[in-house]
Amino acid sequence: MMSLTETSVPAVAWKQYRFKTKIYAGNLITLLAAQLLGLLLSFRGVGFSGFSSETVTHKIMYISGDIIVVITLIWAFVVGYNLAGSSFKQDFVFVSNRLSSHLSNIAYLLTSAVIAGVTASLGGILLRVLVVLAYGGQSHFGLFIPPLDLAGGIFAAILYALLVSAGGYLFGMLVQLSRAFIVLVPGLLIGALYMEAKTTGQARLLLDAVNFFVQESSYFLFFVKVFLAVVLGFALVIFFSQRMEVRK
C-alpha cells in the first residue's frame, strides 16, 4: 500500500487508540454489568461466623469488595484476550503496521485498567454504603477506610487489572498464532497444577506465582514487579506477532 501522507508510528498509534476507545465502548457497559453483579453477590457478605449460647445468638457477617475486584479482573482478562483477537481487523482501516497496532492496544489496555481499577475500588465503597443503609440498625465495625488506604487500593487494583489484561492479551495473541493454544495453555496450566496438587498435596507453582505479587507490601516494589511482568508480556506479544502471517 502506498500513501502520499507522511506519518509517524506514534501518530498512527494515537489515531488507532482513539478509534478503539470508540468501537470498544461497549466494553464499559460490560464492565459496569460485571461490577454490579459483583456488588449483588457481595451484598449478603463474603463470609460468616456465628456463636450461640442459651441467651445469645450472634452472627457476624463479613463484608468485602473482593468479589467486585475479582470479577473486574476477569473482565480485564477478557478485554485483553478479545483485543488480541479482533483489533488487527480494525487496524486495517488505517495505514499502519503491527507496532502501531500494539502500541494503541497497550494504550487501550492501560486506559481500561485505570477505569477498571478506580471503579472496582469505588464499587467496594458503594457496597459499604448500601449495606449500612440497608441494615441501618445493626452494629458494624471496620467501616472507615482512611483515604490513603483507599488510594493504595485503587493503585493496586489498577496494576492488577493491567497485569491481568496483559496476560489476556498474551494468551489471545498465542491463540491468534495457533488455535491449539486455546486448549493447550489452560490444559497445561490446570494439568500441571492438578498433578502437583495430587503428588505434593499443594499447588505451589501457582501459589508462588500469585504470592510473588500478592504478598508484596511495598508500593514501589509492587509497581516494579507488575511493570516488569507487563513489559515482559507485551514484549512476548510483539515477538510472537512478528511470526504471524498477514491476515487475508
Binding site: V56, K59, S64, S139, H140, F141, L150, G153
Partner: peptide, 12 residues
C-alpha cells in the same frame, strides 16, 4: 444479634 464486619478489599 447481627454484626457487620467490613474488611478491606485484598487490593488495599
Amino acid at each position: 444479634f447481627m454484626t457487620f464486619f467490613f474488611c478491606q478489599d485484598f487490593t488495599s
